[in-house]
């Protein structure tokens, strides 16, 4: 069975449908990019996948023993976070909360997992640094380490490169691809950056308040949807 399956799912707010007719499967180890314009239903879909929003119609099924709280989520940064006094280590460790359940304090195992995830992302030197003093790219790495702490199976990234400069953006994309390649963790990424999406992703889901395309990246590049979308962007 697939890791995540959407069957005829629709999501919306207070009676208004934001995105409808979703039929797709994410297999373990896939790298799926969700693309589409602003307001095309990407954020709503993320809430649906995280089970923060129940589908209006259809269903979202989790396979391979995946629990909704086992999704490593990288949300968009909020303004309050940018000047938050916390060490990188404290932020990463908070990724273990889902494993903690009702117990109030972290165990040695949690701390070891946090340190492992810090090493994996090459931010050992930043461990004790204050989050608000890090650069945008470093902050994203810390948040990615936290997301990795929360999951063994799937990372859900909401526009992880928003606001980063081109060099740092490429580094982060490479890092995400590396995680996907080396550990087999499934990646689901929402992105505006269609050109990087087709460069790194194995599958593409294109939303236009409905499912405009779902399939492999090669299939997408040959589809009329992509030609309109990517061509349009080049003309800008």
């Amino acid at each position: 069975m697939a890791l995540i399956t959407c069957r005829g799912a629709s999501f919306g707010y207070e009676g208004n449908t934001a995105v409808a007719g979703l039929n797709f499967e994410v297999q373990s180890g896939n790298y799926l990019c969700v693309v589409g314009e602003n307001g095309s239903g990407k954020s709503t879909l993320i809430k649906g996948l995280l089970r923060l929003k129940a589908p209006i119609e259809g269903s979202v099924l989790m396979g391979d023993g995946l629990k909704p709280t086992e999704i490593g989520y990288l949300p968009q940064q909020t303004a309050a976070q940018k000047d938050f006094p916390a060490s990188a280590y404290e932020v990463v460790l908070s990724g273990r909360l889902s494993a903690r359940g009702v117990l109030p304090f972290y165990t040695c195992k949690d701390k070891a997992a946090a340190n492992e995830s810090i090493e994996r992302l090459g931010i050992t030197l930043l461990r004790r640094r204050c989050y608000r003093e890090l650069s945008g790219g470093q902050q994203q790495r810390v948040l990615l380490a936290r997301a990795l702490c929360a999951t063994q199976k799937v990372l859900l990234l909401d526009e992880p490169v928003a606001g980063l400069d081109p060099v740092v953006t490429q580094e982060l994309y490479r890092l995400i691809a590396e995680i996907n390649h080396n550990t087999g963790i499934t990646i689901i990424m929402v992105s505006h950056d269609i050109h990087s999406a087709v460069k790194y992703a194995s599958h593409i889901l294109h939303l236009k308040n409905r499912q405009a395309f779902f399939g492999t990246t090669t299939g997408y590049l040959n589809s009329p949807v992509s030609k309109a979308f990517m061509g349009g962007e080049r003309n800008d």
Binding site: L52, T69, L97, Y106
Partner: peptide, 23 residues
């Protein structure tokens, strides 16, 4: 406060993440 310290940190730092991980 002491018992909920770690949860309070998570909720203060990043509500969306905390929510997604089941807090």
């Amino acid at each position: 406060f002491v018992l909920a310290y770690n949860k309070i940190f998570a909720v203060t730092f990043d509500e969306s993440f905390a929510k997604a991980t089941g807090v």
